[in-house]
Design a protein around this nucleic acid. Structure first.
Length: 224
DNA sequence: GCGACAG
DNA sequence: ATCTTGTCGC
């Protein structure tokens, strides 16, 4: 498939997006974080490693479950097509989950994407899960910078439509980009992200998925 | 035409 | 995204 075909596929998938709340935010208790890394980012093909960590946000972010998956991939990183690179290994990890999280936070964008199909939305549409995108830098959109104080935020617009929020979690830290993946509204995505903030700038599910992934990667590179 | 461009 | 220790600043 070429880029044009992939764009058409994204547009087709975007028709299945549900951008309304499908569950009261107060009933979301088990929140999963998803992150992906690579054994080598400079080669293709390479091996993608994904992890999903499930936390109970009403019990001190207690870890309920963690799974990993490794998968050989041959799709390069191309802006706006991240899902085609990372989703295969993410879905393998997803299959290993024994618990059923109420929602998933995915490292990357949701509808804060040219065709509303960032990796969090792609994951949400494919699995039918409630998902939210958590990005660390800008992909698309117009916005004002939030003030340099904790929990200040500004809406992000794409073609006049509100697609997400830029949120500064802590003072003197770069803001993060929050947008709905699927089955949740723009505003509730922000509320859920806020509920998942612990002591650091990244929501706990994402932060822990990232941390566990790093140690897992170190270990397999060392041992083989 | 030019710059921007998640991980 | 990865390679990497200490170090400067709030």
């Amino acid at each position: 498939m070429n880029i044009e075909d992939l764009e058409r596929q994204q547009l087709e998938l975007s028709k299945k997006l549900i951008l309304e709340d499908t569950k009261p935010i107060e009933n979301i208790r088990l929140v999963a974080g998803i992150d992906t890394t690579y054994t080598d980012i400079w080669t293709n093909p390479t091996v993608a490693i994904s992890s999903i960590v499930v936390l109970d946000i009403e019990n001190n972010f207690k870890e309920v479950e963690i799974v990993f998956a490794e998968k050989e991939i041959d799709f390069p990183y191309i802006p706006t097509f991240l899902a085609y690179r990372e989703l295969p290994s993410i879905l393998e990890a997803y299959k290993k989950l024994k618990t059923k999280p109420d929602a998933f936070l995915v490292d990357g964008m949701g509808i804060l994407h040219p065709r509303k199909m960032g990796i969090a939305s792609h994951f949400g549409v494919i699995t039918g899960e409630i998902s939210v995108g958590i990005g660390k830098s800008k992909l698309v959109g117009n916005f004002e910078m939030p003030e340099n104080k904790p929990f200040s935020y500004k809406p992000i617009f794409v073609n006049k439509g509100k697609r997400g929020y830029i949120l500064r979690v802590k003072k003197n830290t770069n803001p993060i980009f929050v947008s709905p993946g699927n089955k949740i509204s723009v505003d509730s995505s922000l509320q859920l992200a806020l509920k998942c903030i612990g002591r650091y700038k990244l929501p706990e599910p994402i932060r822990l998925a990232h941390n566990h992934l790093q140690e897992y990667r170190r270990k397999i590179l060392k041992e083989g």
